[in-house]
Design a protein around this nucleic acid. Sequence first.
RNA 1: AGCCCCGUGGUGUAGAGGUAGCAUCAGAGACUUUGGAUCUCUUGGCACCGGUUCAAAUCCGGUCGGGGCUACCA
Length: 562
Amino acid sequence: MVSTATPSKDFIRQIIDEDNRTGKYGGGVHTRFPPEPNGFLHIGHAKAICVNFGIAEEYGGKYNLRFDDTNPLKEEDIYIKSIMDDIKWLGFDWEDRLYYGSDYFDQMYDYAVDLVKKGKAYVDDLSAEEIKELRGNVTTPGKDSPYRERSVEENLDLFNRMKAGEFADGEKVLRAKIDMAHPNMNMRDPIMYRILHATHHNTGDKWCIYPMYDWAHGLEDSIEGITHSLCSLEFENHRPLYDWFLIELGVYRPIQIEFARLNLTYTVMSKRKLLELVKGGLVSGWDDPRLPTIRGMKKRGYSTASIRNFCDRIGIAKVNSTVDIEFLEHCVRDDLNKTSPRFMGVLNPLKMVIENYPEDKVEEFEAINNPEDESAGTRKVPFSRVLYIERDDFMEDPPKKFYRLAPGREVRFRYAYFVTCKEAVKENGEIVELRCTIDPETHGGNAPDGRKVKSTLHWVSESHALDAEVRLYDRLFTVPDPLGQKDADFKDLINPDSLRILTSCKVEPAVRDLKAFDRFQFERLGYFCVDPDTTEENIVLNRTVELRDPWAKIQKQQQRKK
RNA sequence: AGCCCCGUGGUGUAGAGGUAGCAUCAGAGACUUUGGAUCUCUUGGCACCGGUUCAAAUCCGGUCGGGGCUACCA
């Protein structure tokens, strides 16, 4: 029996349902994701991709990947591969529907000629400055260009010569003839073509005139038979123009629907800001794990499932909003908890000697790989007289609610024994070693007499431990809204602890078998993944996110009280 | 200022004339060989004013607030 509760639908799915009901587009759904190949994809794009491709998938429709490459000055081939790689990594397959806006340059030109013939477009000789001047502003209407009333013949001739390369960059443009007094600035005779003697990554030197976004985009959608053209809110004011071109041309017209793009706290999302960070050397590159780029997140240890689940769960709406990064972190924990194998690793090692354990003895304890997934099986973890534990797991003078190890206190060592601390050995006031004893009766971690222990600690056997470098990543900025601060440049608000590198970490032997990008959990610490920098000699691990940590919260509260 | 879009717990969203729901966060508890996970409970919201109606988050009018637009970028 399936639940009768109908899942709530966002406004876009409601529109599609209605279109399907009325048969507006023959009941089909065909969407597209149209990135400009001039940068790397980030989580904001992931949302757009999930909206466009996810909805098409859900309705049994198709989706296109289309590179919107109408500006040869800004676009480069190198971005195309990275964008495709990222989208594939997100788990989407556009099959054979990979297109380029530039594929349609010929057809667009013909359409432009159509419009000229209809008296709806004209060649303007004004300079960029003059055009700006005559456009007016939001409160004052613009004025007609002196070239606005050229004859169709003259326009046709001029436009053809523009194409033929007779004019220099900026000398002439082709404009739509709409209304210079229109309250919507986009309708004040928008430019359709500009002259750019530049080599295009796809069409080479074939063209010296290139179409503007507003002219090109609707045509691309129309040519590809897109049904629902889903884009971000800033194109709302462009929709009348999108419609105008297609209506004047009398061609198939998709519907453009706008939704709010994703904003996240404690990070920046714009290409320009991201570029500033990369160019300024403030991060290690586009794949720096602190960045919200797809590559960065992959390197950080985010899974495809966690990102897609996040994008689905934040919803779609028309209000500008900022999602708390905590929710992203929740989504990645949620997925990784179910899928990640567990290991033990000590980030800040404190040596511990078990006085009543023989020096040459080694035992192997069976550890559960994933308590959430029985099929993940078990592994053996070696135990011996000298171990490492986490420095934070011992306090000489424990405050209230600190359940971990302290002098005279007994805790459990995960999968091994109950351990009691006898003494903390100090050198120059610093604790350098703990002397402890085990209760042999608690072999495996259970007391036959049923006595309980307040906490369970992770540990690593000294002689079996692997050394590892661990990169602890945290939020990139110290404030939720780094761009909204008065009198502060966002680059000065970078969290100095957004990356902390620990070099003397000790991890259990099984970590050796992991490969680059493998994700796992260090019990009690968080989720990590293997950095591709890892070599035979040097294990490098990246922390994706910490586990939820009630003790850290209590600690903060206690500090506040002081 | 002109035009366009939008206001539902702290945050993100559902609700389409009839008991304001979900998720997250926060708080409390249960359970626990991860202070993880899981489970239970609790706090907390319809921007404001007026109108229509037996009944308004929902429809209408206004006010206030937020965002977008003034590139030969996309």
